[in-house]
């Protein structure tokens, strides 16, 4: 409860800000849409090859759009001194971190939910299954956890637009591979047996490990 109430307040604040300005979700969404379109031309996606290429395109679009959304997570706090306010508030830093993770998680889910129909139409991709939903939830949670920590770091650097992806992608790689593999199995390209039972637990383990480590590191490294 001591964790949940400040978390809820933080999430509500960010959702309200986003509802009024709409600058994070909309710009990331347009960017994700562009990624899908560009890949369509770059890879010459034809109906025969769509099930082979679609998982990769899907996750590149999600990951890039997600990075764009997460890179903004702390910008507002920095520009208007919000971070000082948050850190001065009598709540644990775990609550601040987890609240930010939840905000990024929700934003990314909205972006992904909006991109999937686009995907279905443009690439003729119709195999939406429960497994794919599970992969999306687990991968997005992993993205949001690691991405929020790196976003808090990157916002303090000189070239934050470059720094976030440079930090984010190498670390997130296991989740990205897992998500692509599970999606591949869902659309029927590649082998089916054992893929889901192997990758979903790996992604869950990744999420669990980083949900423990990242709040600890965050609470130590955010100062002043």
């Amino acid at each position: 409860m001591r964790l949940l109430r400040p978390m809820a307040a933080l999430v509500w604040k960010d959702l309200l800000l986003e509802l009024r300005s709409r600058d994070i979700v909309v710009s990331a969404l347009v960017f994700g849409f562009l990624v899908v379109v560009v890949f369509n031309f770059a890879l010459k996606v034809s109906p025969e090859r769509v099930s082979e290429l679609a998982p990769g395109i899907l996750w590149v679009a999600f990951a890039f759009a997600g990075t764009l959304a997460m890179s903004r997570a702390f910008v507002r706090e920095r520009e208007q001194g919000g971070m000082e306010g948050l850190l001065l508030a009598p709540v644990s830093r775990d609550a601040i971190f987890l609240g930010k993770v939840l905000v990024s998680f929700l934003f990314m889910l909205v972006i992904e939910a909006a991109l999937l129909p686009v995907f279905a139409v443009l690439l003729n991709f119709t195999s939406f299954t429960l497994t794919l939903a599970g992969a999306i939830l687990l991968a997005t949670l992993g993205f949001a956890t690691v991405g929020t920590l790196f976003s808090a770091i990157a916002v303090q650097t000189r070239s934050r637009e470059v720094m976030l992806p440079v930090l984010f992608f190498p670390v997130i790689l296991p989740v990205l591979i897992g998500a692509v593999e599970v999606s591949g199995a869902a659309v029927g390209s590649g082998p089916q047996t054992g893929v889901v039972t192997r990758w979903l637990p790996l992604m869950a383990v990744f999420d669990a490990v980083f949900l423990v480590i990242c709040p600890w590191i965050f609470s130590i490294i955010v100062e002043e």
């Binding site: 690691v146 920590l149 770091i153 303090q156 930090l167 190498p170 670390v171 790689l173 296991p174 591979i177 897992g178 790996l202 383990v205 990744f206 490990v209 980083f210 480590i213 990242c214 590191i217 965050f218 130590i220 490294i221 100062e223």
Partner: peptide, 21 residues
């Protein structure tokens, strides 16, 4: 401080990367 955070995360990540690859 930031580098220390990345030094920890990067190393913890290595076994997971290895298994996934």
């Amino acid at each position: 401080l930031y580098a220390a955070g990345l030094g920890i995360i990067g190393f913890v990540d290595v076994p997971i990367v290895y298994y996934s690859v």
